[in-house]
Design a protein around this nucleic acid. Sequence first.
DNA 1: TAGATTGTTAATCGATTAACAATC
DNA 2: TAGATTGTTAATCGATTAACAATC
Lengths: 238, 238
Amino acid sequence: MESIDKVHGTFERRVMETKDTDVPTAVIKRLPRYHRYLGDLLEAGRLRISSSELSKIMNVTASQIRQDLNCFGGFGQQGYGYNIKYLFSKISELLGVAEGYDCVIVGAGNLGRALASTRMFGRRGINRIALFDVNPEIVGTEIYGIPVYHIDELYDFCKHKRVNIGVLTVPKSAAYDVARTLAAAGVKGIWNFANMELKLDDDSVIVENIHLGDSLMTLCYKVKVKNDQIKKSAEGEE
Amino acid sequence: MESIDKVHGTFERRVMETKDTDVPTAVIKRLPRYHRYLGDLLEAGRLRISSSELSKIMNVTASQIRQDLNCFGGFGQQGYGYNIKYLFSKISELLGVAEGYDCVIVGAGNLGRALASTRMFGRRGINRIALFDVNPEIVGTEIYGIPVYHIDELYDFCKHKRVNIGVLTVPKSAAYDVARTLAAAGVKGIWNFANMELKLDDDSVIVENIHLGDSLMTLCYKVKVKNDQIKKSAEGEE
DNA sequence: TAGATTGTTAATCGATTAACAATC
DNA sequence: TAGATTGTTAATCGATTAACAATC
């Protein structure tokens, strides 16, 4: 039996030649999904997988998988497929997982609490080191083990602790104020739940907007299209 | 001054010829965003807008806007631009907003409560008629004015009330059970927050998966890329 | 009428898929 | 060695942009 080590050695050599030509945005958007599926396979104890098997699981073409993964260098091996553990760790690295980012959640309403309680951050190597809110009843307490501070302390805290990521779950009206404070304090990324596109002059900050409303609307659209189809085919049968 | 009514009359005539050839998926994905911006313009009291002005606000090309809107028929008028109110209402109609869908939220944890409290549903003409949970302490109460029932009643409730949309905020482990119950009860659309792709055999149900984890990961990736750039340029200066 | 701006065609660009030689 | 499966090129497909004639 061919040893996994030998295979691994070969991988390492090839990856050194990683192409640094810019990765298509379409590929980048798909990386988190690969990460998710490979993580599941790893948990299930799988060691290797071919592009064709993965394509069936993920509902994409095998060709696309090979094309995508090759943007970052040769992760696979002819005749063998892909080593799941290795591939997973490489994609994790590419995505910046396990960079050990520190993050704060601004807004301790229902959404802020929901985010304080998920395991989503930990799984991606992100530490939630503080919550911020204006409500005096919760300032000074802990929520899911995360200390809650007053929002007035946000700037100093982020500056001192060199916080990398800020999560914004405050009302729309407060979003810009908080975002500017975060940016001024050197925060590098903002995860914005304020249901609006947050445009900052300061382009040293990356904003990832979550648009739940758009998603809900897309669902409405699809439901409507489906209902219309049903209606039409019912009419046809009459 | 040219009357708005005259303009409107012209619009109506042209829209009757709406092209029913299938709309590209890329366009559909952009519709909620158009809807959002047009709604804002409407609130700001604006009456009309040209593709070129809208393109600046939305950060896309004017050409794309004209191309997109034309998939559904002639919404604009040469030399005038687009009537915002009319365009907004047409896109609303296309998206299935104001179809008056009834919806239930399954899972009354932090996320369920957050969704119970937003104005997101109301704005899209969706009525949240019930919450479901297993916790006996909250069953029988109301949360943000929405009655909470035990999850055992989910099937009968949805079947009787002909619920259109189910929102899934239960833990991953319960997601499939609940989803199948909803589907069996005739629910047409499922908005899934369970951090997993929900595949149902029953293809009469539309599932819209929310992947907050993927979004967080994309943010990590972008932050990492930016940090790498900064590091590189700093090295270059040495 | 003259100016503005759309609707639409044609050109470009990028992303996906198919195919197969390279190679483990 | 033979079989399997990748990496990669070429072909196809779809989406975006540019340009301009149509028309309000």
